[in-house]
Write a protein that binds this DNA or RNA. Sequence first.
DNA 1: AATACCGTCACATTAATATGTGATAGGAAT
DNA 2: ATTCCTATCACATATTAATGTGACGGTATT
Lengths: 206, 206
Amino acid sequence: MLYEDNPQLREGLTMLIDGSDGFEVLASFKNCSNVVEEVEAFKPDVILMDIDMPGVNGIEGLKLIRQHNLDAKVLMLTVFDDNKNVFEALKNGANGYVLKKTPPAKLLEYINEAASGGAPMTSSIATQVLKMFSEVQAPAGEDYNLSDREKQVLQLLVNGYSYKMIASEMFIAIDTVRSHIKKIYEKLHVNSKSEAVAKAFKDKIV
Amino acid sequence: MLYEDNPQLREGLTMLIDGSDGFEVLASFKNCSNVVEEVEAFKPDVILMDIDMPGVNGIEGLKLIRQHNLDAKVLMLTVFDDNKNVFEALKNGANGYVLKKTPPAKLLEYINEAASGGAPMTSSIATQVLKMFSEVQAPAGEDYNLSDREKQVLQLLVNGYSYKMIASEMFIAIDTVRSHIKKIYEKLHVNSKSEAVAKAFKDKIV
DNA sequence: AATACCGTCACATTAATATGTGATAGGAAT
DNA sequence: ATTCCTATCACATATTAATGTGACGGTATT
């Protein structure tokens, strides 16, 4: 099934696919404004989905399809490999992401791959995807050198414990808790509980 | 360059690669215990890196290579496509991830792809990668129905502002800040600043 | 017109936090 | 042997935060 606003490209793709053994275009549309009904009606194996369409675009269409738990494979098909759309598409459960400049033979291969549970991606996209992964990585930034005891106190702070509760949880005096916390603040360069908690999350200390 | 502990496979790969036009194995090793020196000495374009090796394994080796900013492409080569290793490898900057069962011709193609800046992946791996993306997605959990003003206050709390500071930042009385915060606590089902801050992070409200 | 929020402010009280200044003891490193 | 760090505890004080109760005007919905 095809979603593509450009009539020429839509026809071109239809001819390519219909003209190939084992492939058939069930239907094609110029945007996703009725995507749910259409997919339910035609039950395609694979949907070629353009992103940039007037009206309801490809990303929105993809979301709708996934929200309704329709089990078609969705292969995003677009001119640009801009970071934002790639990420949006992938995190919303696209099954692949290929550029329109893909040669026809390769495109058919990709459709097959998507149909059989693969994840076809143009290599420039795959590279981007990998880059996103390595960027997700912990910034390996400052370690802050929190001692074990300090980490433990911070953990309890994050969990919303008061000083008193921390003291009884750790079997130490409340004043000891205080001094740990003071040390933590120094090490994290903050001066309030909320900042410490926020930093603990941001820097993945906890 | 090859890192592979199994001598048979090491030789087999060497023969395959050396026997192919345009390919050459510079060196091969049975683990990564001296990976940094070796990579610096041979300056390979692409490294085929087994993961499961005694001593310093492939993931560790990859980390070492990236820590030292050596610019070789690293293509992970492994028997299993287990989730944990895939994720570890990718987030540490692997350039590709292929299974050992890949047919020889395809493997050479993958090496080429890696060398030219691509991101070759066995399709089962690519599928996993996509799955990880969609899992990263916000759980679209509870909305908590915070009003605009409440969100703003929460944001400032997260940034470590005191009530007084929030009041002056928002040009409202400190008592108004108090009442906003009380409302926030009710909506988030918490009863302290740190819990609210923690929840704000966990549920990506901010 | 009644209801339900939102956003604003006030007063009062108790609990918790932040900060300063020490002190003691044990372990690790030089 | 000395220094440095961790972990523990104490006392004191000022600031903040949490909670309760109540009020007023505005907007949106029904």
